[in-house]
Simulated assay, not measured.
Amino acid sequence: MDLLSLLGFFLGIMAVVGGNLLEGGKLAFLVNGPAFLIVLGGTLGAVMLQTPPNLFVNALRDLQWVVSLPRIDLSQRIQRIVQWSALARKEGLLGLESELEREPDGFVRKGLQLLVDGNETEIIRDCLELEMYAKEQQALHAAKVFEAMGGYAPTLGILGAVLGLIQVMQNLTDPEKLGHGIATAFVATIYGVGFANLVFLPIAGKLKAHIRKITLLRQVTIEGLVAIAEGENPRNIELKLNGFLE
């Protein structure tokens, strides 16, 4: 579990709520059902209209990465590649068939299969780089869904504010309804800006950071498998791939 994400979320919320309390406000002032419905419902509706169904579903599925990031260990992948290289030098490329059967990662499995089949290095690189790029773009589209939410939310907050002011103008002679309309107007703006900057845009940034890590892992895999295909020394492969480590 990514505790930093949870801590950041609660810290951001508490900063807003705490600042409101320090200014003499009340927690109840920030709770407004109509404003919440306008901003969140309108944002989701706009994004659903903009986004193809499969990309929207992928975005919701990838949301779990924000609090539960899959473990990505570059050094472990490098060590496995070095082991594959040593095995290939000892038993030939066909000796990697046993590793192919045990490999859970589909991308790595495809690379090993290309290697075992004796393909040229250019073919191995082209096939894997094409798949890496396609998977990266697909994942980035999911992240862009939350970026779009971050763009729509403040605008829907302004829309909520305008609707609240319309209610105010229609009830200038009724003090009770006047106060409710003003509250909806200002709280809708807070919700729009708050959701965008405390939820949607940070989620998009977190997903993009994770996508970059996955892409880097695949780049390491490609370089390692190509080096094995070229018959490089395992020690040289390790030295080369260690350049990817931070």
Score class of each variant (00 low, 15 high):
Val67Pro: 01
Gly224Ser: 11
Ser98Ala: 14
Leu165Cys: 09
Asn32Pro: 04
Leu37Thr: 14
Arg102Gly: 00
Cys127Trp: 03
Trp84Tyr: 11
Leu241Thr: 06
Ala183Gly: 13
Gly179Gln: 09
Lys26Val: 12
Gly231Pro: 09
Ile222Gly: 02
Ala86Gly: 09
Leu60Gly: 13
Ile228Asp: 03
Tyr133Arg: 01
Glu136Lys: 00
Ile203Cys: 04
Val220Met: 07
Leu69Ile: 10
Glu223His: 12
Val187Thr: 01
Gln50Phe: 05
Glu23Leu: 15
Gly224His: 02
Ala148Lys: 06
Asn242Gly: 07
Met48Phe: 13
Arg80Ile: 10
Gly25Ile: 05
Glu136Gln: 06
Ser68Met: 12
Leu3Pro: 01
Leu27Ile: 15
Pro154Ala: 08
Arg125Gly: 08
Ala143Phe: 00
Val226Pro: 00
Val145Tyr: 02
Glu131Asn: 06
Glu122Ile: 05
Ile182Cys: 02
Glu101Leu: 08
Ser68Gln: 13
Leu6Thr: 10
Ser75Met: 08
Ala142Asn: 05
Val108Thr: 12
Lys110Arg: 14
Gly179Cys: 13
Ala46Val: 07
Val39Gln: 01
Asp174Gln: 13
Leu225Tyr: 03
Met169Lys: 11
Ser75Thr: 10
Phe107Cys: 07
Leu27Tyr: 00
Gly45Asn: 07
Leu241Tyr: 05
Met48Glu: 06
Gly179Trp: 15
Met169Arg: 12
Gly231Ala: 14
Gln76Ala: 14
